[in-house]
Design a binder for these strands. Structure first.
Lengths: 126, 126
DNA sequence: TCTTGACCTAGAGCGCACTCTAACCCGTAT
DNA sequence: ATACGGGTTAGAGTGCGCTCTAGGTCAAGA
């Protein structure tokens, strides 16, 4: 699997894939006879996991910590788990504040709806 | 209320307050005799609302759209409402994907826990 | 009077996460 | 043979959202 195909499958751009390799988020890729990157499809498991860390808001530097631990093998399991648990707690917090803000947003929107039903608005709120 | 106090109350830095005024997110502040910004406490309602848009991930350029509409007065209500509704939908989506990712994260963490109970790990997953 | 601390401006700098450019190489189809 | 559609590199550029610096003003307290 060449870089273009990995790009399609993973949703990352080829630029990003090379960038991730440069900084150590992706393992240094094997090369084919012509010197081009040649990926084992199992890389997709890793890119998908990275994507999940990313959508949950983990900064690259933390993914990097995880990636380095992973490369050091099984004895880093405890540390990786701790990293993930800390991250999970962060995600839960984010989820809570997001939920709270959603409620406020709904109330705000309702107030606009109300305002349109009466036909004037006092503008004392944002 | 001077800029330092607003900073304390709003959680924004004085840098950020001046920056927000520069770009139009905050109204151009009144000045006291000495030429220093002098805020009416009602500004806090607006900064709090901005904070909510920010924590829900609205980019500054959209907050700016909202702020400009607000300055144009009551007849922009419909447009503001539409903006907010679009944003709310975005937040709901984000909430859903975050929730899904949280589940995956939990499963992953559980797998680390299992792995530690057995005393070896096959490392076929991230 | 002098110092301190908070304020002012214009503009530069920063950290993040990409994203692109320029110049080159390689294999395949025409 | 040559053109094309991939790939390669090092390094520069981008967009976002601040954050800070330099050099100055101003009011109040010792």
């Amino acid at each position: 699997m060449k870089i273009g195909e990995l790009a399609k499958c993973s949703g990352l751009s080829t630029y990003t894939i090379r960038y991730y390799e440069r900084i150590g988020l992706l393992p240094v890729a094997e090369r084919d006879a012509g010197g081009q990157r040649d990926y084992d499809p199992s890389i997709l498991i890793w890119t998908e996991f990275l994507g999940r860390l990313k959508t949950t808001g983990m900064p690259i530097r933390d993914m990097l910590r995880y990636a380095r631990l992973r490369e050091q093998g099984a004895q880093t399991g405890l540390e990786r788990r701790a990293l993930l648990e800390a991250h999970r707690d962060m995600v839960r917090d984010k989820l809570d504040t997001l939920q709270a803000s959603l409620l406020v947003l709904d109330i705000k929107i309702d107030s606009y709806v109300d305002t349109e039903q009466r036909t004037h608005h006092d503008e004392t709120t944002p």
